[in-house]
Amino acid sequence: MSKKITVGPVGYMPQSAPSMGVELSPEGKALLYGNIVEEEEAMRDAAKALLTMNNPTIFPGPQVLWDWREDVADKSAAILDLASEIPNCKIIPMPDYRPKYPKIDVKAEINPNHPNLTILDNKIKACVFIGVHCHYANLTLRMIRAGTSCYTVAMCAMMGHEEAMASIRDVHADSIVKFKDIVIQVRNELGIEHTTTMPPENPSLPKEDWGSLTPADYGEYRALIMSKKGEHVTAVE
């Protein structure tokens, strides 16, 4: 089968996948390189990519990062299990769609308005997007395909995304577990030894040493460290 949607960079001004004739897969089916295939086939190809390419990363979107619905708990658990089955896999969150001034910390998050910054800086060659609203997922996937050489997998709770190399639709916790099992299966076939390890925490978070405190940690003694009226504080850390 000919690959219509291939790993980028496809060029300065990409033609969008739908305008190239790629259609969303019907229920029960998935998309692989723009072609309608069985879900297992797409998951196997995606698993192989995540296991063989450098810096595999999972990008959880707002719908799985924030605890706004009851299915978020088991979805986030399944995502972490999936990440822990992929060798040196990282988790970089997409907590927000808003363009943040002056620039996001590319090690700590990915933003749909300039996702290529995070992909290029961390040299990510294979990634999974999950829990991102479809509009922003399509923008993100298209910009990644335009400017980076990153294999993208979209796991969508609704209809999927034409822009991704592999697009799985109607994803809930059970499909994530199914994908994890396929990853393990493919990993064994490729003969990659791996012990389940949790991905590293967000690099922007301060290490949990209690040396550095913020004013709020002082609780009711906060007034002690706040300058009084008229008191002139010269240098502040």
Binding site: S16, P18, P99, N113, H135, L139, M143
Partner: peptide, 18 residues
């Protein structure tokens, strides 16, 4: 503004016509 790439606007327009 300086912290945005214009490509976001063009892919956004593409998404609408898609």
């Amino acid at each position: 503004s300086n912290f945005m790439s214009y490509l976001i606007h063009s892919v956004w327009q593409q998404e609408i016509w898609d």
